[in-house]
Protein backbone atom coordinates (compact mmCIF):
# COMPACT_ATOMS: atom_id res chain seq x y z
CA UNK A 1 0.00 0.00 0.00
CA UNK A 2 2.81 2.33 0.84
CA UNK A 3 4.31 1.94 -2.61
CA UNK A 4 1.10 2.85 -4.33
CA UNK A 5 0.79 5.95 -2.24
CA UNK A 6 4.34 6.97 -2.89
CA UNK A 7 3.92 7.03 -6.66
CA UNK A 8 1.74 10.09 -6.51
CA UNK A 9 4.35 12.11 -4.63
CA UNK A 10 4.67 15.62 -5.97
CA UNK A 11 8.16 16.18 -7.28
CA UNK A 12 7.60 19.11 -9.58
CA UNK A 13 8.29 22.01 -7.28
CA UNK A 14 11.81 22.04 -5.96
CA UNK A 15 11.78 24.89 -3.46
CA UNK A 16 9.63 27.43 -5.26
CA UNK A 17 9.01 30.84 -3.79
CA UNK A 18 8.08 30.92 -0.13
CA UNK A 19 4.72 32.52 -0.80
CA UNK A 20 3.85 29.83 -3.29
CA UNK A 21 4.78 27.16 -0.75
CA UNK A 22 2.56 28.78 1.86
CA UNK A 23 -0.39 28.84 -0.47
CA UNK A 24 0.22 25.28 -1.50
CA UNK A 25 0.54 24.19 2.11
CA UNK A 26 -2.82 25.73 2.94
CA UNK A 27 -4.43 24.11 -0.07
CA UNK A 28 -2.99 20.71 0.57
CA UNK A 29 -3.58 21.04 4.29
CA UNK A 30 -7.27 21.55 3.74
CA UNK A 31 -7.37 18.85 1.09
CA UNK A 32 -5.71 16.31 3.35
CA UNK A 33 -7.95 17.20 6.26
CA UNK A 34 -11.04 17.03 4.09
CA UNK A 35 -11.94 13.38 4.75
CA UNK A 36 -12.27 14.08 8.45
CA UNK A 37 -14.01 17.43 7.89
CA UNK A 38 -16.44 15.99 5.34
CA UNK A 39 -17.03 13.02 7.59
CA UNK A 40 -17.88 15.37 10.40
CA UNK A 41 -20.35 17.27 8.25
CA UNK A 42 -22.02 14.27 6.67
CA UNK A 43 -22.16 11.89 9.57
CA UNK A 44 -22.26 14.18 12.59
CA UNK A 45 -23.34 17.71 11.86
CA UNK A 46 -26.14 17.20 9.34
CA UNK A 47 -27.70 14.26 11.23
CA UNK A 48 -27.55 16.31 14.42
CA UNK A 49 -29.44 19.18 12.89
CA UNK A 50 -31.86 16.76 11.26
CA UNK A 51 -32.39 15.10 14.61
CA UNK A 52 -33.13 18.45 16.18
CA UNK A 53 -35.69 19.24 13.50
CA UNK A 54 -37.33 15.82 13.74
CA UNK A 55 -37.60 16.24 17.49
CA UNK A 56 -40.00 19.14 16.90
CA UNK A 57 -42.34 16.99 14.80
CA UNK A 58 -44.61 14.02 15.43
CA UNK A 59 -42.81 11.72 12.99
CA UNK A 60 -43.72 8.10 13.74
CA UNK A 61 -42.68 6.20 10.59
CA UNK A 62 -46.08 5.78 8.97
CA UNK A 63 -47.73 9.17 9.48
CA UNK A 64 -47.51 12.52 7.72
CA UNK A 65 -44.96 14.60 9.55
CA UNK A 66 -46.26 17.68 11.37
CA UNK A 67 -44.50 20.27 13.44
CA UNK A 68 -45.64 20.15 17.02
CA UNK A 69 -43.13 22.52 18.55
CA UNK A 70 -41.80 21.50 21.92
CA UNK A 71 -44.50 18.91 22.66
CA UNK A 72 -42.08 15.98 22.60
CA UNK A 73 -39.84 17.68 25.13
CA UNK A 74 -42.72 18.85 27.25
CA UNK A 75 -44.20 15.35 27.29
CA UNK A 76 -40.91 14.00 28.60
CA UNK A 77 -40.22 16.63 31.23
CA UNK A 78 -43.72 17.07 32.63
CA UNK A 79 -43.74 13.49 33.87
CA UNK A 80 -46.49 12.15 31.64
CA UNK A 81 -43.96 9.74 30.18
CA UNK A 82 -43.61 7.00 32.78
CA UNK A 83 -40.08 6.00 31.79
CA UNK A 84 -38.12 9.16 31.06
CA UNK A 85 -37.03 10.08 34.57
CA UNK A 86 -36.70 6.45 35.48
CA UNK A 87 -34.28 5.74 32.65
CA UNK A 88 -32.35 8.93 33.27
CA UNK A 89 -32.05 8.01 36.95
CA UNK A 90 -31.04 4.43 36.23
CA UNK A 91 -28.38 5.52 33.77
CA UNK A 92 -27.02 8.20 36.08
CA UNK A 93 -26.82 5.66 38.88
CA UNK A 94 -24.92 3.34 36.58
CA UNK A 95 -22.50 6.06 35.48
CA UNK A 96 -21.92 7.29 39.04
CA UNK A 97 -21.17 3.77 40.18
CA UNK A 98 -19.24 2.42 37.25
CA UNK A 99 -17.07 5.38 36.21
CA UNK A 100 -15.19 5.85 39.51
CA UNK A 101 -14.96 2.12 40.16
CA UNK A 102 -13.63 1.41 36.69
CA UNK A 103 -11.13 4.24 36.94
CA UNK A 104 -9.95 3.08 40.33
CA UNK A 105 -9.73 -0.54 39.27
CA UNK A 106 -7.93 0.21 36.02
CA UNK A 107 -5.60 2.66 37.72
CA UNK A 108 -4.65 0.19 40.46
CA UNK A 109 -4.00 -2.53 37.94
CA UNK A 110 -1.86 -0.20 35.86
CA UNK A 111 0.16 0.89 38.92
CA UNK A 112 0.70 -2.73 39.91
CA UNK A 113 1.85 -3.64 36.44
CA UNK A 114 4.14 -0.65 36.25
CA UNK A 115 6.12 -2.06 39.15
CA UNK A 116 9.55 -3.07 37.88
CA UNK A 117 9.97 -5.91 40.32
CA UNK A 118 7.00 -7.80 38.90
CA UNK A 119 7.88 -10.55 36.51
CA UNK A 120 5.61 -11.67 33.72
CA UNK A 121 4.11 -8.23 33.33
CA UNK A 122 3.36 -8.86 29.68
CA UNK A 123 1.38 -11.96 30.56
CA UNK A 124 -0.74 -10.17 33.16
CA UNK A 125 -1.24 -7.26 30.81
CA UNK A 126 -2.53 -9.61 28.15
CA UNK A 127 -4.80 -11.41 30.57
CA UNK A 128 -6.29 -8.17 31.88
CA UNK A 129 -6.82 -6.93 28.37
CA UNK A 130 -8.37 -10.12 27.04
CA UNK A 131 -11.98 -9.46 28.17
CA UNK A 132 -12.15 -6.22 26.20
CA UNK A 133 -11.84 -8.23 23.00
CA UNK A 134 -15.17 -9.90 23.52
CA UNK A 135 -18.04 -8.53 21.45
CA UNK A 136 -20.56 -7.09 23.84
CA UNK A 137 -23.17 -9.50 22.47
CA UNK A 138 -21.01 -12.40 23.48
CA UNK A 139 -19.92 -10.97 26.81
CA UNK A 140 -23.53 -10.21 27.69
CA UNK A 141 -24.38 -13.78 26.84
CA UNK A 142 -21.54 -15.07 29.03
CA UNK A 143 -22.44 -12.88 31.98
CA UNK A 144 -26.12 -13.68 31.66
CA UNK A 145 -25.05 -17.22 32.28
CA UNK A 146 -22.53 -16.36 35.02
CA UNK A 147 -25.23 -14.43 36.89
CA UNK A 148 -27.69 -17.30 36.83
CA UNK A 149 -28.70 -17.66 40.48
CA UNK A 150 -28.39 -21.44 40.67
CA UNK A 151 -26.39 -22.60 37.68
CA UNK A 152 -24.15 -19.56 37.39
CA UNK A 153 -20.48 -19.49 38.21
CA UNK A 154 -20.68 -16.62 40.67
CA UNK A 155 -23.17 -18.15 43.04
CA UNK A 156 -21.47 -21.51 42.67
CA UNK A 157 -18.25 -20.00 43.97
CA UNK A 158 -20.02 -18.10 46.72
CA UNK A 159 -21.77 -21.25 47.83
CA UNK A 160 -18.50 -23.15 47.84
CA UNK A 161 -17.03 -20.44 50.09
CA UNK A 162 -20.16 -20.52 52.29
CA UNK A 163 -20.92 -16.91 51.48
CA UNK A 164 -24.41 -15.55 50.89
CA UNK A 165 -25.49 -15.76 47.27
CA UNK A 166 -27.32 -13.10 45.30
CA UNK A 167 -29.95 -12.69 42.64
CA UNK A 168 -27.66 -10.45 40.57
CA UNK A 169 -29.35 -9.16 37.45
CA UNK A 170 -32.65 -10.69 38.51
CA UNK A 171 -33.17 -8.36 41.43
CA UNK A 172 -34.12 -4.71 41.20
CA UNK A 173 -31.54 -3.68 43.77
CA UNK A 174 -28.58 -5.60 42.45
CA UNK A 175 -29.06 -5.40 38.71
CA UNK A 176 -27.06 -2.18 38.23
CA UNK A 177 -24.19 -3.21 40.52
CA UNK A 178 -24.10 -6.51 38.64
CA UNK A 179 -23.74 -4.75 35.32
CA UNK A 180 -21.03 -2.59 36.90
CA UNK A 181 -19.13 -5.75 37.85
CA UNK A 182 -19.41 -6.78 34.25
CA UNK A 183 -18.04 -3.42 33.15
CA UNK A 184 -15.11 -3.86 35.54
CA UNK A 185 -14.34 -7.01 33.68
CA UNK A 186 -13.83 -5.10 30.45
CA UNK A 187 -11.81 -2.26 31.86
CA UNK A 188 -8.52 -3.44 30.31
CA UNK A 189 -8.52 -0.72 27.67
CA UNK A 190 -8.55 1.98 30.33
CA UNK A 191 -5.77 0.16 32.13
CA UNK A 192 -3.57 0.18 29.03
CA UNK A 193 -4.02 3.91 28.63
CA UNK A 194 -3.08 4.44 32.28
CA UNK A 195 -0.08 2.24 31.78
CA UNK A 196 1.03 4.38 28.88
CA UNK A 197 0.70 7.47 31.03
CA UNK A 198 2.65 5.89 33.88
CA UNK A 199 5.50 5.03 31.59
CA UNK A 200 5.75 8.67 30.61
CA UNK A 201 6.55 9.79 34.16
CA UNK A 202 10.24 10.74 34.39
CA UNK A 203 12.20 8.43 36.66
CA UNK A 204 14.16 11.28 38.20
CA UNK A 205 11.06 12.54 39.97
CA UNK A 206 10.78 9.31 41.96
CA UNK A 207 14.47 9.39 42.67
CA UNK A 208 14.27 12.86 44.08
CA UNK A 209 11.43 11.76 46.36
CA UNK A 210 13.65 8.94 47.55
CA UNK A 211 16.49 11.39 48.15
CA UNK A 212 14.17 13.46 50.31
CA UNK A 213 13.46 10.33 52.33
CA UNK A 214 9.95 9.81 50.97
CA UNK A 215 8.26 6.40 50.92
CA UNK A 216 5.98 4.68 48.42
CA UNK A 217 2.97 6.65 49.58
CA UNK A 218 4.80 9.89 49.03
CA UNK A 219 5.74 8.80 45.55
CA UNK A 220 2.14 7.95 44.82
CA UNK A 221 0.64 11.17 46.13
CA UNK A 222 3.36 13.65 45.18
CA UNK A 223 4.47 12.25 41.85
CA UNK A 224 2.27 9.56 40.31
CA UNK A 225 -1.18 10.96 40.92
CA UNK A 226 -0.40 14.61 40.09
CA UNK A 227 1.41 13.64 36.90
CA UNK A 228 -1.31 11.20 35.95
CA UNK A 229 -4.15 13.71 36.25
CA UNK A 230 -4.26 14.41 32.49
CA UNK A 231 -4.68 10.71 31.79
CA UNK A 232 -7.22 10.36 34.58
CA UNK A 233 -9.03 13.31 33.12
CA UNK A 234 -9.08 11.75 29.67
CA UNK A 235 -10.37 8.44 31.00
CA UNK A 236 -12.93 10.17 33.19
CA UNK A 237 -14.39 12.09 30.28
CA UNK A 238 -14.44 8.99 28.11
CA UNK A 239 -15.98 6.98 30.93
CA UNK A 240 -18.78 9.51 31.35
CA UNK A 241 -19.48 9.70 27.64
CA UNK A 242 -19.57 5.96 27.10
CA UNK A 243 -21.24 5.23 30.42
CA UNK A 244 -24.30 7.24 29.47
CA UNK A 245 -24.58 5.32 26.25
CA UNK A 246 -24.65 1.81 27.71
CA UNK A 247 -27.08 -0.20 25.64
CA UNK A 248 -26.33 -3.80 24.73
CA UNK A 249 -26.33 -5.05 28.33
CA UNK A 250 -29.94 -3.98 28.72
CA UNK A 251 -30.88 -5.14 25.27
CA UNK A 252 -29.47 -8.61 25.65
CA UNK A 253 -29.43 -9.41 29.35
CA UNK A 254 -32.28 -7.69 31.11
CA UNK A 255 -34.57 -6.01 28.60
CA UNK A 256 -34.59 -3.15 31.04
CA UNK A 257 -35.90 -5.24 33.92
CA UNK A 258 -36.62 -6.25 36.56
CA UNK A 259 -39.24 -3.58 37.06
CA UNK A 260 -37.35 -1.13 34.81
CA UNK A 261 -34.40 -1.16 37.20
CA UNK A 262 -32.00 -1.41 34.26
CA UNK A 263 -33.95 0.66 31.78
CA UNK A 264 -30.87 2.39 30.39
CA UNK A 265 -31.48 5.62 28.58
CA UNK A 266 -30.23 4.54 25.17
CA UNK A 267 -32.14 1.28 25.45
CA UNK A 268 -35.28 3.27 26.17
CA UNK A 269 -34.49 5.52 23.23
CA UNK A 270 -33.99 2.51 21.00
CA UNK A 271 -37.27 0.98 22.17
CA UNK A 272 -39.12 4.24 21.60
CA UNK A 273 -37.71 4.56 18.09
CA UNK A 274 -37.76 1.06 16.75
CA UNK A 275 -40.29 -0.80 18.86
CA UNK A 276 -42.93 1.89 19.10
CA UNK A 277 -41.84 3.73 15.93
CA UNK A 278 -41.84 7.09 17.76
CA UNK A 279 -38.92 8.54 15.86
CA UNK A 280 -39.61 12.12 16.84
CA UNK A 281 -39.81 11.42 20.54
CA UNK A 282 -36.66 9.32 20.27
CA UNK A 283 -34.87 12.22 18.60
CA UNK A 284 -35.89 14.46 21.47
CA UNK A 285 -34.53 11.85 23.88
CA UNK A 286 -31.28 11.86 21.95
CA UNK A 287 -30.92 15.59 22.15
CA UNK A 288 -31.64 15.66 25.84
CA UNK A 289 -28.91 13.08 26.36
CA UNK A 290 -26.54 15.14 24.25
CA UNK A 291 -27.17 18.19 26.37
CA UNK A 292 -26.78 16.24 29.60
CA UNK A 293 -23.46 14.82 28.47
CA UNK A 294 -22.25 18.15 27.10
CA UNK A 295 -23.08 19.89 30.38
CA UNK A 296 -21.37 17.21 32.44
CA UNK A 297 -18.30 17.30 30.26
CA UNK A 298 -18.26 21.05 30.55
CA UNK A 299 -18.36 20.79 34.32
CA UNK A 300 -15.51 18.30 34.29
CA UNK A 301 -13.52 20.57 31.97
CA UNK A 302 -14.17 23.61 34.14
CA UNK A 303 -13.10 21.89 37.33
CA UNK A 304 -10.17 20.29 35.57
CA UNK A 305 -8.22 23.54 35.94
CA UNK A 306 -8.13 22.93 39.65
CA UNK A 307 -6.94 19.36 39.60
CA UNK A 308 -5.39 18.49 36.26
CA UNK A 309 -1.66 18.94 36.26
CA UNK A 310 -0.29 20.71 33.19
CA UNK A 311 3.32 20.44 32.25
CA UNK A 312 4.47 23.88 31.24
CA UNK A 313 3.51 23.85 27.61
CA UNK A 314 1.07 21.80 25.57
Amino acid sequence: MRNILAISGNKKHPSGSLARNRKQEVLIGVLFASPAILGFFIFIFIPMIASLIISFTDYALVNKMQFIGLDNYAGLFNGSDPFFYKSLGVTTYYVLLSTPLCLLFAFSMAVLLNNDSIRGKAVFRTIFYLPTLIPVVASSMIWLWLFNPDMGLINTILRALHLPTGMWIYDENTVIPSIVIMSLWTTGGTMIIFLAGLQGIPRQLYESVELDGGNAAHKMFYVTIPLMTPTIFFNLVMGLIYGFQVFAQAYIMTEGGPNNASLFYVFYLYRTAFKFSKMAKASALGWILFIVIALLTLVVFKTSKDWVHTEGGK
Binding site: S51, V266, L289
Partner: peptide, 10 residues
Protein backbone atom coordinates in the same frame (compact mmCIF):
# COMPACT_ATOMS: atom_id res chain seq x y z
CA UNK B 1 -18.66 13.37 23.15
CA UNK B 2 -21.72 13.18 20.96
CA UNK B 3 -23.88 10.21 21.86
CA UNK B 4 -24.44 8.13 18.75
CA UNK B 5 -28.05 7.93 19.80
CA UNK B 6 -28.56 11.52 18.64
CA UNK B 7 -27.46 10.83 15.11
CA UNK B 8 -28.75 7.28 14.90
CA UNK B 9 -32.20 8.05 13.58
CA UNK B 10 -31.42 10.78 11.03
Amino acid sequence: MLPYAVTLIP
